[in-house]
Structure formats: structure tokens, C-alpha cells
């Protein structure tokens, strides 16, 4: 094959980029509406930031309608792993917070998962998901949000493929898409449980070289998994599920 099919490749690239970039276009009504929703939910989440360890009633009611929630919390909570928890003989291979940090709890097929708010990319109400071909089974497809395509993960299938059967699949009622940091990946979940503030000691941090790198640890009080978002994104990018290393 010839190396340079287009003699002026940079010109073609500039042309294509311009056609596919909307910077100069005005804000649509949808976008304006989303921004309003985003602000109201950010306010809600900021309330959680000043009430440590509070047991909130649950977020399901307040976020019934919003399509986008965006975490607006300070990132200082996550710092170097040097001073990790006392009950580990091997230091974790990721950053462990030394200060209190906030998490969002959400439910999937009876399983509760926790995700640090600093790594929450947003929450969308799940709309129509378009399936893609030649993708792993846990990849439900893409959901269009404004002009963005969000990759929807069948969280139950990803986390516990061994327990996933037809009955479980039929019982699932995914409502929200929990976006992972700034990636295009989102975890489908059935309900949002609550946000709360955790101290580092509230979590049993996993050891290095664990079989489940996507787990940061276990929230002792709730006995639920705290997700290591960066590792999870890496696994998803590679097309791995929770059992793959």
C-alpha cells in the first residue's frame, strides 16, 4: 500500500476536524437544560461535602429527573500511598487517601458498589442503548448523550460473570449510567443509594498484585466494594472483565 494516500494530509485533517467540531455553534436547548441540572446536582453533592459520615436518605429521589450529575468536589482527598492503612502487610499499588473522601454508593443486582466522587465523571439517566458488534458481551453498547457516545457497561455481567444467567439478566433494571472519570466508559446501575464521607480507616484497602486490580478495597461498614476507577478504565479499554488479569 502507498504510504501517503493524501499528498496534503494535514490539510485534509484540518478540514475534517473543522467539519466535526462544533466550537462555534451556539448552546442548544438541551445543553442549556443539562447545565442547569448539572448546577443543581452539584449543589446537592456539595452539601454532602460538609457533612462527614452522614447517613443520607439516599439520592434516588433528588436525581429522578436529572440526566447529568457532575461531581464538584475537591481532589485533595487522594494523595500518595506512603501512609496507607495499618492492616496491610503489602502496600497497595495505587494512591490511598490520607484524608477523608467522599464516595457514591450505587446498586447493581443486589450488589452495592462505591465510587470516589473525585473520579465520578457524571451520572446520566439511561436512555436508548445502541448495541455494537464484535464487542465483549458486557459491553451493552453506546448511549447517545447530546453529541457524545457513552460506552455502557453491563455492570452485573462485568463484575460477576459467573453468576450472570438469563434470570439475572431479565431481572436487571438499569436506570443510571455512572461515568468513570473523564473516560467514555459508564457503569450501568439500578439505583443510586447515597453519598457519604469515608475516612481512610473505613476501608480495608486491598494489597498489591491482587487478583482484582479494579477493587481499591472494601468499605468495612457496608461490606461493599470500593472501585479503583483508573484500573477499571484500563481493564475496560483492554476489553477485559473482572476475572481477567
Amino acid at each position: 500500500m502507498s504510504k501517503d494516500t493524501f499528498a496534503k494530509e494535514d490539510v485534509v485533517e484540518d478540514y475534517l476536524t473543522s467539519l466535526l467540531t462544533e466550537d462555534a455553534l451556539p448552546l442548544t436547548e438541551d445543553a442549556a437544560e443539562d447545565t442547569l441540572q448539572l448546577e443543581s446536582v452539584a449543589k446537592l453533592l456539595s452539601t454532602a461535602a460538609v457533612t462527614p459520615k452522614q447517613k443520607q436518605e439516599g439520592l434516588a429521589a433528588p436525581v429522578n429527573e436529572p440526566q447529568v450529575l457532575q461531581a464538584k468536589v475537591t481532589p485533595e482527598a487522594l494523595v500518595s500511598a506512603k501512609s496507607s492503612s495499618e492492616n496491610e502487610s503489602t502496600e497497595p499499588d495505587f494512591l490511598v487517601p490520607t484524608a477523608d473522601f467522599q464516595v457514591l454508593f450505587f446498586d447493581v443486582a443486589g450488589l452495592t458498589l462505591a465510587l470516589p466522587l473525585t473520579e465520578l465523571g457524571g451520572i446520566h439517566k439511561i436512555k436508548k442503548v445502541g448495541p455494537l458488534f464484535a464487542k465483549p458481551k458486557w459491553f451493552k453498547g453506546v448511549m447517545l448523550h447530546r453529541d457524545e457516545k457513552l460506552n455502557v457497561v453491563d455492570t452485573a455481567l462485568w463484575v460477576m460473570p459467573e453468576k450472570y444467567n438469563e434470570e439475572l439478566a431479565e431481572s436487571l433494571n438499569y436506570q443510571y449510567l455512572i461515568m468513570l472519570d473523564s473516560s467514555g466508559w459508564g457503569l450501568a446501575c439500578e439505583s443510586l443509594v447515597t453519598t457519604t464521607t469515608l475516612a481512610p480507616d473505613d476501608v480495608k484497602w486491598r494489597k498489591a498484585n491482587s487478583k482484582r486490580p479494579w477493587l481499591a478495597g472494601m468499605v468495612k461498614d457496608k461490606m461493599c466494594a470500593l472501585v479503583n476507577v483508573k484500573q477499571l478504565i484500563t481493564l475496560l479499554d483492554k476489553g477485559h472483565n473482572s476475572n481477567d488479569n
Partner: peptide
Amino acid sequence: MGTRPGMGLILKKAFSKIE
């Protein structure tokens, strides 16, 4: 219209109206 920014996304928007 070929030089206007965002002109490559019109069909995508149109399809979202009739999805």
C-alpha cells in the same frame, strides 16, 4: 457550507430527532 465548523454533525443531529 463545507467550511463551516460543525457541518459534519448535521446528520447525527437529524437522526437524534427521529430515533
